[in-house]
Design a protein around this nucleic acid. Structure first.
Lengths: 153, 153
DNA sequence: CTTATTTCAGGGCCACTGATATTA
DNA sequence: CTAATATCAGTGGCCCTGAAATAA
């Protein structure tokens, strides 16, 4: 407490927690990423989704929704946007006429490659100054955290 | 690609990136936290803010907004909510009649302590299985990431 | 007069729920 | 008839911008 004038306001013991730091990094990283991507419109937000479509073309919307942990209904709007920007195509499936397969257009493919390139620079900037060994430990630890969060309900 | 039936849909090389993993952990951790906190209403979201107020009572809204990286105008609504829930008080400052000092009520103090207790369990579950040494390395690395994100514009 | 603090009105984005049409 | 897929209308949360009122 003391005299807080011109002091940074801190949150006490919590600041040492991993959950706190991870959230902080995520917020800062997201902002830096958005800034770097400002020229690319609203697409960068969906780099993850676009990469999934690139790696698994023709999947139905329901599976894509599952892959990005969104409701099917939420994905509709997103795909509408990506379609309006010419990134993505829906083609009705032949075997099951309820479903649309989703594909990247040529423009979508180029976009996702360019985005990933830029994101890779972001990644390099982010991890600057960490040794390969440190990176490995952090990476494994993060995997462990994901496990901890997934397994016990 | 191959036959994707019953396969998990993945995002390719990006999945090895720290930026990707951190985002994933953050999303999962936030959900787990929300679930754990379901009984506590909408307050847990503001545990960080409440902790800051606890550690630095009587600060004006503008400094609190800065501390949580929000616009002053955004903090108004949040404090309105916290006030409606009886967690927080605004008292006009004596030296500067434009500003409100913000303080925890007795209920707010109890709430933030209870919340932090619960969040601490969340932290323990999250970091389960990591050695003290690993924790230290990860913690330092995350600090480094924050630096990398803050320093170069 | 200029600057700082808070408040308020309005808007945008995002994902949700729940209902509907279509097809399996 | 029941279940699954995609869509649509409506809602709520969250934060923003820009303007107003008050005070330094």
């Amino acid at each position: 407490m003391e005299n807080d004038t011109a002091t940074e306001l801190t949150a006490g013991e919590m600041e040492g927690w991993l959950s706190y730091k991870i959230r902080l990094v995520q917020i800062l990283a997201y902002r830096a990423f958005e800034e770097r991507m400002a020229a690319y419109g609203r697409t960068p937000r969906y780099l993850g989704l676009l990469s999934i479509i690139e790696a698994h073309p023709g999947q139905p919307q329901s599976r894509l929704a599952e892959a990005v942990a969104l409701r099917r209904s939420s994905l509709v709007t997103i795909l509408d946007q990506l379609h309006a920007e010419g990134m993505v195509e829906r083609r009705p499936s032949e075997n099951d006429r309820r479903t649309n397969g989703v594909w990247l257009t040529r423009a979508g493919l180029l976009a996702v490659q360019r985005l990933r390139e830029e994101a890779s620079k972001h990644e390099k900037q982010l991890t600057k100054g960490l040794s390969g060994e440190e990176l490995q430990i952090v990476s494994n630890a993060l995997d462990r955290l994901v496990e901890n969060l997934s397994r016990d309900e």
